[in-house]
């Protein structure tokens, strides 16, 4: 447990360094850059003409089905990692291999089903 927190303390330290680089760069930048905001400058950029409609546009997220698919597949994929480290250990024999093909068959069937339903083709 001590080793574990020690390891991630290094990650946290580097995170702080990274944050420091970005924040320090921007802080130093403050002294170098001009700051003369005007109303025109702060307008949302739309290729030079005045913005049409509100700044928060509505958009149809066409790929939400891909989103669902991704969530389902990714949750499955996470289980691959712990399994990958032990599946070839002696003593399991072909059991883990059969398991793997069952797993892959589920994924492949899911993908095939999604494809046949037509959700994988762009609207």
């Amino acid at each position: 447990m001590q080793d574990y927190s020690h390891t991630y303390a290094v990650v946290a330290a580097l995170l702080l360094i990274g944050g420091g680089i970005v924040a320090g760069g921007l802080a130093a930048n403050r002294g170098l850059r001009p700051n003369r905001p005007t109303v025109e400058k702060l307008t949302t950029y739309e290729c030079g003409v005045d913005p049409v409609g509100g700044g928060w546009a509505q958009s149809y997220v066409r790929y939400y089905v891909f989103g669902y698919l991704y969530v389902i597949f990714a949750v499955d994929a996470v289980f691959l990692f712990p399994w990958a480290t032990v599946f070839a250990a002696p003593g399991f024999g072909a059991t883990t291999l059969v398991e793997m093909f069952v797993f892959l068959a589920f994924l492949a069937t899911g993908l095939l089903y999604a494809g046949r339903k037509g959700v994988l083709s762009w609207v």
Binding site: Y63, F66, G67, Y70, F73, A74, A77, L80, F81, A84, T85, F87, A88
Partner: peptide, 16 residues
């Protein structure tokens, strides 16, 4: 969303 999945599968192949 589309590309994370094959990337994870390919990486876990190396881990396997």
């Amino acid at each position: 969303m589309s590309y994370e999945l094959p990337m994870v599968f390919a990486a876990s192949s190396a881990a396997m």
